[in-house]
Simulated assay, not measured.
Amino acid sequence: MNRMKQGVLTTVCMLALTAFATGSFADTKKGQKIDGKKEFEEHCAVCHKDGGNIVNPAKTLSKKDREASGVKNAKDITATMRKPGPGMTAFDKKTISDKEAKAIADYILKTFK
């Protein structure tokens, strides 16, 4: 392959990789409705399957356990996602936007009673 074709191919590959990587950061598009259940399954369900907790079984997502930990509303859930206790992964705004976090929190409040 000549150098010109090689350069074009390299450029095309780099642009494709950049587009792919950028798309993976932007989970939802502006104005798009966010599915809290889908976001929960993507980010939370691995540790909180069916509202449980594989790291600390005493701290489930049930209303009773949440409220015993001082987590009573969507704002509290989002704060916990941003700065969790030991054993839980912190989710910054780049990983889960505020709108996605709110959708997850609303889903948790609605689903795990």
Rank of each mutant, 00 (worst) to 15 (best):
T89L: 15
C13W: 08
H48I: 01
K63T: 13
E100N: 05
K102I: 11
I54C: 10
F112Q: 05
A19W: 12
G85T: 05
K83I: 09
G7L: 15
A58Y: 08
T11P: 02
T18F: 15
G52P: 06
A105Q: 00
R66I: 06
K64H: 09
K102P: 05
V55K: 10
G23E: 08
S62M: 05
A103N: 04
K64Y: 06
C13R: 09
K37E: 14
K37S: 09
K63G: 07
G23C: 06
G85E: 01
D76S: 06
V46T: 13
M88F: 07
L109M: 13
I54A: 14
K94I: 12
M1S: 15
T95W: 01
D106W: 03
S62V: 08
F112T: 06
A45L: 02
L109D: 02
M1F: 12
E42V: 06
K102H: 08
M1Q: 13
L17E: 02
A68T: 13
T78P: 00
A90R: 12
T78I: 15
F20E: 09
A101P: 02
I77N: 00
G87F: 04
F40M: 02
R82W: 03
K94T: 11
K5P: 00
V55Q: 09
I96F: 01
E39M: 14
P86Y: 14
K33N: 09
T22L: 15
M81P: 02
I104F: 03
L15G: 15
K102R: 14
G87C: 06
K110T: 10
T22R: 11
K59D: 14
H48F: 00
V55T: 11
N2E: 07
M88P: 03
T18L: 15
C47I: 05
F91K: 07
D65I: 10
H43Q: 09
N56W: 12
D65Q: 13
H48Y: 03
K113T: 08
G23P: 04
T18M: 15
Y107T: 03
D92G: 13
A45K: 07
G36P: 00
Q32Y: 02
S97C: 06
S62G: 09
V8C: 04
A103G: 08
G85M: 01
A105P: 05
K49H: 11
A74G: 10
F20I: 15
G52R: 04
F25T: 11
I104G: 01
D98P: 02
K110I: 02
M88H: 09
G51S: 06
M14C: 15
E41Y: 05
F112I: 07
K75N: 11
C13M: 15
T111V: 08
S62H: 07
F20S: 12
V12S: 06
K83S: 14
V8T: 09
A103P: 04
F91W: 14
L9E: 09
G51D: 01
K75T: 14
E42P: 00
L109V: 07
